[in-house]
Write a protein that binds this DNA or RNA. Sequence first.
DNA 1: TCCCGGCTGTAAGGTGTCTTACGCGGTCAC
DNA 2: GTGACCGCGTAAGACACCTTACAGCCGGGA
Lengths: 244, 244
Amino acid sequence: MSGLGAAIEMFAALRKERPVDEDVNKVWYLRQNRLFREATEEGIMQHEHLFTMCEMPRGTLVFDAGDSARIIYFVKRGTVRIVRETPDGKDVTVAILGAGDLFGEESLFDRRARTTHAVVVDDALLCTSRADDLFALLSRDPALALNVAKVLSERLDDAQSTMEDLAYARVGDRIEHLYHKLASEHGVPVKGGLRIDVRLTHADVASLVGSTRETVSLEIAKLVDLGRLRLDGRAVVVPKEMLS
Amino acid sequence: MSGLGAAIEMFAALRKERPVDEDVNKVWYLRQNRLFREATEEGIMQHEHLFTMCEMPRGTLVFDAGDSARIIYFVKRGTVRIVRETPDGKDVTVAILGAGDLFGEESLFDRRARTTHAVVVDDALLCTSRADDLFALLSRDPALALNVAKVLSERLDDAQSTMEDLAYARVGDRIEHLYHKLASEHGVPVKGGLRIDVRLTHADVASLVGSTRETVSLEIAKLVDLGRLRLDGRAVVVPKEMLS
DNA sequence: TCCCGGCTGTAAGGTGTCTTACGCGGTCAC
DNA sequence: GTGACCGCGTAAGACACCTTACAGCCGGGA
């Protein structure tokens, strides 16, 4: 994958929209993105060396809490989990990210070591950039900087909605909300609903809804009984009559 | 708080002309905001007409969930609470903001009605700007746009830390963490610690830590017993030996 | 001054969920 | 194949916290 491809993917990531067919969409992104509307081919070329692509299999630790490497990541393909660890060693997953998302953006503004770690959930293709390089690029282009702000604003809204759930909803409802959100972001249409192919174990789900592996097993079984979720092999399906 | 009250307050916020001495201070106030931290005096002067100051007493509903007015707010003085409401009517306070913070920034990127409401906790002086005006300003100044991103990034980190607490910490610990955070952000030094002058009722605290008024009363009493908090009249004091 | 409404303290009972414990089936490496 | 490991299902007991209920307090307005 060329650096140019990487750069294009990065701006695609900032727009938070997902390609259906990659080859067609490279051109599509060029036309859509404000930056590239006025930019010459050479202008794009100038920045291609700032980006690197890399492939990572399920389970890879992208970065660890405490790391001080200042790198920003863009998800091109696959899924990544952002995790905090509580003082007594429990994991809290604060975000599940897919194609089009970016992460590690704290290091754009903050020199402190990371407070989270990031793990690959489904085999991923990532694009990376050094914080200083990206910062310089953003400093020259307000539209891009605003895109970053927009992405963060959406993530904040997401986090607040999760806080609401954690504060007052029961575990069963939290799990259902989680799967509805995953369905809308990562669901693939199957007959009768949306299948979630993100490979989350019950322990992973527990870390997302603030519960334990055992209660998650129990509550999922209850939800399936009630017809609010279905199982398709190992994957969870949200019935379409449940999608508001 | 009634919807009518909300509308009246919004209207007042847009219309009210402040006394001349406030206008003179406007630039000074703007300068205190994180957004304009590195901006030049002239730069602020140029855009000063985009902003309006307005005073709001404790209890004022700054904006309500469902409002579609696209306005961004800057806190010059006082304290403001950002609140979401759960389907069954419970309040979840997702942020407590003080001097230098901004809020309502969703409307910069998003045309949907607000999902939160904002209430004045301590008599506040706010500065308002129409979303479109501010957006135009940010589009011309990458440094300002990056400041917005930075503020959002910090708020996100904050939200994630709260999620961690809500997920696995006991109510007592959550309250203690809350007061430590408030102390570091809004605390005024008194002998033996930091006093928190933000006027939060136990019900308010409950909405911050995802609990009930009664358990908050109980747990605060326990914390005071253990010497982990002190009371100074109605205010809470965090003993300095508790500040890590 | 007195009343009223909002804030706080306290306690009994109920329950959602965590903890602990164990067994079972799949999958992968050897 | 066969063991080791991981992910899953289930169940009894404990407990943190919510619910419900009521009473005292303080401050502000009539």
